[in-house]
Design a protein around this nucleic acid. Structure first.
Lengths: 394, 394
DNA sequence: CGGAAATGTTGCGTCGGTGCACATATTAGC
DNA sequence: GCTAATATGTGCACCGACGCAACATTTCCG
């Protein structure tokens, strides 16, 4: 039993973790704010902050110029010297980021590739890029580890990629490989789950403890769930695969695929086709669709996809009762093309009390989302027990 | 911030809670077992158990006759003097139970009703029954509170029944009413969510932290989810409404309802019809169906319902990645009528790594399930902070 | 410019868990 | 049967974390 906080040592570490999490999430918090948020006494917070500073995890800075009575309280910031590496292998590129505590993306390198990368390619690219960065953004930084956001099913615990159809990976021990190559702790998780986490901690879902995140990409639809303020992982870590669900399709003429799965019915390829585009990035596709949304072919396809999506979203809402559904990629475009209609369709198929509390929103963090999520994976152990920082290489 | 265990007082109460939860879940644990499970020191456990005993929550008994070396360790049991009242208003009856710590159902009263009860009826019945019990099962007991398992949407926090179509209740403050009538803390929650909790803590799902529970009753299909060892509630407490989901129905001839919702397609009424029964309890229906499952009308309807159910289960599995799906009521009959077939259909539509770890099982706790779940609701505050017991009437 | 308010700083008190030393109860081996 | 080994209960001294009170510091306000 990991009875967190069972003895004095755990108690201290718990409180250190609580303080560090506050600083991490807020990026800057005065000691007075920390005192209020934790309920701990002033002197205790002072001692905890001092210990975190000694661990090299936070720095105390000048007080914020607030126009209030009383002695100003020094502001506590994440220490810029601690970073996580984040990797996102995709069909067209491998993106690598350097992310500080507080989810600050300090550096991002996009390494384009012509064809799908193998796990070996990925590790090699990462090694090369990191080598280059050692002189610059990584100089004098302590690297907490490396996290990979992978478009596929990633086993919880060891970061084994069970299946990434898009990349063509099967049972690839990507975390193990990255760890061996770089000599730092390495972990991996599904990209959409990390996107959900990032939007929850630093995006549209900041103040929301129950949300569903769905992202529409070229390869399909991925998803992640935050329930009760915590990521929903399931036994194996495979939770959130909304794309493979089969929602009801009331009008059989609307069904265009054999399986009837969400990502076969609601797909970027079909939107590109009606927009008359070969390939396009998301803003281009969105613009094209919004400009031509009155043409009947476009309008009908948007409507068809919106309807099927609405059933899938209602199914999710009935089961998870979230206060927010965050849509990314081309799903955000489906929302943008007629927000009221989508909301109306969802509300129709959702139990009224659940529908009342439900909001639909587009994602917010753009290209940093997966890097932030992957970094969060790396920081998680540290945010759970800051004393681990003493083991980081200087 | 409810930073559990932030100070010394919380630390103590946390540890008390941990010990009490162990005793509650196991019904009997030796002090040595508690020591091992918590990682606390022998002397600490002794002190904690002594404090729980002083609070009237546990009793120490004779050591179990184990054939091992060493001094025998006294066994710690839940104190029989602490009970919760549990209520389950249903169409045909109001059931009231007296449940002790350790989920021991000490007494059960079924009060049949001819037509659906109102909230007022329910409270009156409960008051009368409890009055009768005061001389017997409730004599010299400390009542921790009363919990209601309601077939409908119950708002988290205040136990307001937003909607119970089956009973015809709308915005009924049942928890408030029960509390006022009995003068004890009162709370309410959806029946299936409590069923899920009960099966997780004391039923088939004992050692499982991620499970989905689906119950098929006369009025429809209710559900509950345990994710990461904790009940999934959602913002409003309405999570788990699988019955209102619309699963894909590949063969349009299989679709028989307008909405296409799970509970309209997969229903007890249609099973009764093909079995040629007017009304029947669950064992009778199950026997009738299993005996006639080779007749084509019966076989076809079983097959049709099984297929649609399988899609709904797959949808749930893809999103929640549970290790167990527990089926109750007539859904257990659908499983029993051809377990391999249902498992096969689910596996087909579920992502392979998710399907690998997934098991389908029938529910286990029978008629005690909802009473145990409702009692758990009552005991929850006590199991979170045993010191609250000092406020219970003697 | 002085009082009020808010917060940092310091030292001490309280209290919870640990661990040692010893007592006790059971099994295993001869 | 007796003794050794083992596991656990018991009592007490120790350590360490947080709370608190008193004092110091900084700002705002009239």
């Amino acid at each position: 039993m990991s009875n967190s906080g069972s003895n004095l040592d755990r108690l201290r570490r718990n409180n250190l973790a609580t303080v560090l999490r506050i600083v991490h999430r807020s990026r800057a918090a005065s000691r007075a704010q920390i005192t209020a948020a934790t309920g701990l006494y002033r002197s205790t917070v002072a001692a905890l902050v001092a210990e975190l500073a000694a661990l090299g995890l936070v720095v105390e800075g000048e007080p914020e110029a607030t126009n209030r009575v009383g002695r100003p309280s020094p502001r506590v910031h994440p220490h810029p010297g601690v970073v996580a590496l984040a990797v996102n292998p995709e069909l067209d590129a491998v993106t690598i980021g350097v992310v500080g505590l507080g989810a600050l993306v300090e550096h991002r390198v996009r390494h384009p590739v012509s064809s799908a990368v193998t796990p070996e390619d990925t590790v090699e690219i990462v090694r090369d890029v990191v080598q280059d960065l050692r002189g610059g953004p990584l100089a004098d930084r302590r690297i907490a580890g490396i996290g990979a956001a992978v478009p596929g099913l990633v086993r919880a615990g060891d970061g084994l990629v069970r299946l990434a159809p898009h990349l063509g990976w099967t049972d690839a021990p990507i975390a193990q490989m990255l760890g061996d190559a770089l000599g730092v702790p390495a972990m991996a998780e599904n990209d959409a789950s990390l996107g959900a986490l990032a939007e929850h901690l630093f995006g549209v879902g900041r103040d929301v403890d129950d949300l569903v995140y769905l992202n529409g990409g070229a390869s399909g639809i991925g998803g992640g769930v935050i329930a009760g303020g915590r990521p929903l992982r399931g036994v194996g870590g495979y939770a959130g695969e909304f794309g493979h669900n089969r929602p009801g399709v009331p009008d059989s003429a609307h069904r265009v695929s054999l399986t009837g799965s969400l990502e076969d019915e609601v797909s970027r390829a079909r939107l590109l086709a009606v927009a008359g585009l070969e390939a396009a990035d998301e803003p281009t596709l969105e613009r094209a669709l919004l400009e031509s949304r009155d043409e009947s072919v476009v309008a009908e396809e948007l409507d068809r996809q919106r309807r099927i999506l609405s059933t899938a979203l209602s199914n999710a809402a009935n089961v998870l009762n979230p206060s927010l559904i965050v849509l990314g990629g081309f799903l955000a475009t489906l929302l943008a093309s007629d927000p009221e209609k989508l909301a109306e369709l969802v509300a129709e198929q959702t139990l009224p009390p659940t529908a009342e509390q439900l909001q639909l929103r587009a994602a917010e963090l753009a290209e940093d989302r997966l890097l932030i999520g992957a970094a969060e994976l790396v920081f998680a152990p540290l945010l759970g027990d800051p004393v681990l920082a003493s083991r980081l290489a200087p």
